[in-house]
Structure formats: C-alpha cells, structure tokens
C-alpha cells in the first residue's frame, strides 16, 4: 500500500475531504520495537505521527517514582500535538509498548500548508481540537479517580 493510501485510511485523514498527496510527499513509514522511545520530553516536536499498528505510552520520568504512564494510545490514533504550538518541543516521552508502526509527517510542512490553505488548516485544526478535547476530558476523569468506588 502506498503511503498516500495509508494516510487516507487513517482516521485522522479519512473524512477530511482534502487531497493528501502533498502531505504524503513529506511523510514516511517508521517502525519502533517494543520499549523504544519515539520521542523524548524536550526534543524538537518536528513531526506528528499516525499510528497504524501497535500501542504507545505517553510518559513522564520522575526522580522518585520512576516513569509514570499518563495515557496509552493505539492504532488509528494520532501521536503528538506539541508540533502545533511554539516552542515546538515535546512535553512527554512517547514509548512504543509493543512493536509499533507509524507514519511520520513533517510538522513544518503541515503548518505551512495550514497557513497557505485556510480550509485545509481549519479542517486539520478541527480534528486536532476534537482529539485534544477528548484527551482533556479523559484527564479530568482520571483526576476524579472515577474507578474508585
């Protein structure tokens, strides 16, 4: 399957209603074995990832409690939001929990596309806002410790 086809099939771009061939030119398949880091906190957020297979944990390393997993994300999810906002640095570590296949998309290119084509930019931002909202709600519920009975 071509990378363009893989991008079109991913939930993020599936119903975006735009030609993704330009994105495909700045995208590449990448694979991480279990326990390998995809990016580390403080690194440049120069890409975002579409997970096509596997599971990724977002983590924080702490001095006293070791690594704390904040959230896990899976196949058909998007990995990475920090590429959208200055200073374009990752806020968490991302580690593959299983063998994970992703499509890496160059962030600077997508930001440029968003600036040049406002309709495309609006659709990308709407999709990302929806993801951010869902993750924010999930974090709020985590704070409430809703599984505690």
């Amino acid at each position: 399957m071509s990378i363009e086809e893989s991008i079109k099939r991913h939930s993020f771009f599936r119903d975006i209603g735009m030609d993704v061939s330009s994105i495909a030119r700045y995208a590449q398949h990448t694979t991480f074995e279990a326990d390998h880091f995809i990016f580390r906190e403080g690194d440049d957020a120069d890409a975002f990832y579409l997970i096509t297979h596997g599971k990724v944990s977002l983590e924080l390393s702490t001095a006293h409690r070791g690594r704390i997993i904040i959230q896990t994300i899976d196949e058909d999810d998007v990995l990475g939001i920090s590429w959208l906002f200055p200073p374009y640095k990752w806020h968490f570590d991302a580690r593959a929990l299983t063998l994970t296949r992703l499509i890496r998309i160059d962030a600077a290119h997508v930001r440029r596309m968003c600036d040049e084509d406002n309709v495309f930019g609006y659709r990308v931002m709407s999709k990302l806002a929806s993801i951010v909202m869902k993750r924010l709600q999930a974090v709020r519920l985590q704070l409430l410790e809703i599984e505690e009975m």
Binding site: E59, R65, R67, T72, R95, L141, Q142
Partner: peptide, 19 residues
C-alpha cells in the same frame, strides 16, 4: 482493560474506561 495510573512495568492501556 485499562487503568488510571501505572508505571513502566504495566504494558496495558492507561486511561479512563470511557477511552
């Protein structure tokens, strides 16, 4: 199965059940 909190020894899902 998912859990709200975990350390690196856990290889399952982390997040609330609605996720």
């Amino acid at each position: 199965v998912t859990v709200d909190k975990a350390d690196e020894r856990w290889h399952g899902n982390v997040g609330v059940v609605t996720s």
